[in-house]
């Protein structure tokens, strides 16, 4: 696995993503999603909202890096809030 040049940070990142997907799979098996419409201008399932929030989180980080030199952890905080808001009210 050394050819993949792992670092603790990227390993943690991918473990989080994998846990999210496993969690979503279990959640779906226990309580299947019902498509609904929240503040997003489209009908979404739980999986759609996770995808939208992850994609949004990536752009939040990029935008943060493009406009400021301050720590990227602030962007991560904003991204977590964004993820929770989209999953709950999206």
């Amino acid at each position: 696995m050394s050819w993949m040049a792992w670092t603790p940070v990227t390993a943690g990142f991918f473990i989080c993503i994998a846990l999210m997907l496993i969690g979503m799979g279990i959640w779906q098996a226990v309580s299947p999603t019902i498509p609904r419409r929240g503040f997003l201008p489209l009908v979404t399932t739980r999986g759609d909202r996770l995808f939208i929030s992850l994609l949004g989180a990536a752009y939040i980080h990029l935008a943060w890096l493009a406009v400021t030199d301050t720590t990227v952890l602030v962007a991560s905080g904003i991204a977590i809030v964004w993820l929770l808001v989209v999953m709950r009210w999206g």
Binding site: W3, M4, A5, T7, V9, T10, F14
Partner: peptide, 10 residues
């Protein structure tokens, strides 16, 4: 893709 992510921070 995971390898590219790993490379991007090193």
């Amino acid at each position: 893709l995971m390898t590219v992510v790993n490379y991007s921070v090193q």
